[in-house]
Design a binder for these strands. Sequence first.
DNA 1: TATGAATGAGGGTTCATTCAT
DNA 2: GATGAATGAACCCTCATTCAT
Lengths: 190, 190, 190, 190
Amino acid sequence: MRNIDTDKEQAIFQAALRLIQQEGFAGLKMSILAKEAQMAAGTIYLYFKSKEDLINRLYITLKRRSAKSFLKGYDPKAPFMEGFELIWQNFLDTNLANPEESAFLEQYYRSPYLDKTVQDEADQLVAPVFELLERGKRERLVKEAPTEMLVAQLTGFVAALTQLHASGGLTMTAAFKNAALAMAWDGVKR
Amino acid sequence: MRNIDTDKEQAIFQAALRLIQQEGFAGLKMSILAKEAQMAAGTIYLYFKSKEDLINRLYITLKRRSAKSFLKGYDPKAPFMEGFELIWQNFLDTNLANPEESAFLEQYYRSPYLDKTVQDEADQLVAPVFELLERGKRERLVKEAPTEMLVAQLTGFVAALTQLHASGGLTMTAAFKNAALAMAWDGVKR
Amino acid sequence: MRNIDTDKEQAIFQAALRLIQQEGFAGLKMSILAKEAQMAAGTIYLYFKSKEDLINRLYITLKRRSAKSFLKGYDPKAPFMEGFELIWQNFLDTNLANPEESAFLEQYYRSPYLDKTVQDEADQLVAPVFELLERGKRERLVKEAPTEMLVAQLTGFVAALTQLHASGGLTMTAAFKNAALAMAWDGVKR
Amino acid sequence: MRNIDTDKEQAIFQAALRLIQQEGFAGLKMSILAKEAQMAAGTIYLYFKSKEDLINRLYITLKRRSAKSFLKGYDPKAPFMEGFELIWQNFLDTNLANPEESAFLEQYYRSPYLDKTVQDEADQLVAPVFELLERGKRERLVKEAPTEMLVAQLTGFVAALTQLHASGGLTMTAAFKNAALAMAWDGVKR
DNA sequence: TATGAATGAGGGTTCATTCAT
DNA sequence: GATGAATGAACCCTCATTCAT
């Protein structure tokens, strides 16, 4: 008997990301996905109930991975500025290093597969960032604007940078990353 | 003088935007579009060669309309700060007022319909913004960062705000708009 | 513009019956059905929402046609014996003349497409037969057995005869039909 | 002495009958069958060459079991009436007690699995009934109708009664069984 | 012998596009 | 020009069967 291969799920995820980056969400055809993941079409359905299930599980997996990555080394008790810089740098690096994931996450939001419960769970993962900014406001370091707005500037900036970088419009050197950090901080600082 | 053809084209464009906002890009089925635009499916093909043609022409139309809107009243010879504030405010207002267009533009970029020549023409329309920011750098008002990066922060912020606003996450009062302007300016100013 | 062709529905019904008789319920593949009905696969879906819809509407159509056929000329006020003979003869003739319909009706009952509401409506159509037999019991002409049992013998007999005839096991001459009528009547008569 | 192989075969047969009764012929999926029979899907293929083979062997097995059951205690040399009553009662009881088998036999006939040789062998098993009725005709006890027609009435009646009983439409008491015997006999008697 | 993961042909259905009216 | 019925390629998914363990 062939043992169930947990790597198969990962192989499907990887292939799906590749296809979505290359051809967009519309390029995710189950038969092509199977070919890309080097298996038969039916095999995908041993690991995922449907295309919808595949996309939603891919989404939450990426969101979790992303959150884990940008919160790496984050200590809520460390000074505010330290936390802000760490998360910002992690977040930018994570996004630059995984442009397919960013492409997917962006498109999921507008897709017919969007699942409210999945979305809600994903929102929880970003909570620490909201808390950090609120603390920043209390410590008089951050502008007295709605937290959503502050987050909007930070994430919007990273999203735009990632897209720019992925399309070859800008190579992100260390110097540029520092410039971006300065811009991000200047935008939200008091 | 009414141009009958152009009226139909506009009806199709409007219906398409409505459907895309409601159901996403995937919700744009030609037969449903025809119903929404109150005509027969075949009629669409009298005005557009194909779905691809329809989407690309919708894209460039929206881009032109958007550029015209956010450059309204803009005088390249006026002081930098005046121009910056004008464009920013126009841009934010335009996006907030037309969330369907923003939704469409965002998705077009990742769709299989994306056409390089169309995209290039669209990029030309934003040139004045690049020129303004470069002038800002020369006048020592704006940070010495790559213009693409500066633009990324500004447009990324607006895109995120628009999405937030459209999803009901934040009501944009005049005070909030001023706060956003301040944040945007602080991000790029020297 | 091509006008909607109500004959198309009939063509689909006829083709479906032919296929079901030839290959059984399992032989009803939508693509083969389209070929048999001389149209494209998609066309079927202009007239029927789904395969399930097609089968249920075919069922109720056949049931109505069958009821209309075996009640043809039936007068509830005529003497019992006259009504019994008329219905029996009509019923046998109808079944012998339309073996595909009998084959279909038989298989529908055991299929996953069976719909309770449709089935209920169909049962209503046989009501006159139940009423006739009950009247027969009141007039002391028919056995004092449950009406369901009386009907079971009559319909079971016809079903078996139809199958026999369709498979070539017995050619139904006028003499044989008379013999069958005598057997049917002897079975239920007092 | 337990024959392991035959045990598995029986388990598969039982499970198949259960599934067919519950969901109809279309409900017989090999993987579900395996689960119902508490074994792996591949195991079924150690005992049956294919689904077709499984169904045909199930058919002939049931037919043999049925024939053995309704001929139990039958003595071709006993008086006609005794034989007729015995077989009729056995046949009705057998069918009422095994509605899944009846459901299966009915559907097999219309299925794409029907195999002529298997069918022929099955027909042999009913030969004693034909012989009995022919003897009845010679003894002037039974109507001078084609034997196939006589059999049609008897088996059609039992099939209809079984279905009625299985669907809950009629509870078969001893009195009702006697009434059925009377009806059956009246139908064929001279 | 037994397992159950893997296969892939083939099913039902959708939808961009065509074409007869 | 306008219509919408008709088309058929292509999609998602199922399931009988195989095969590595």
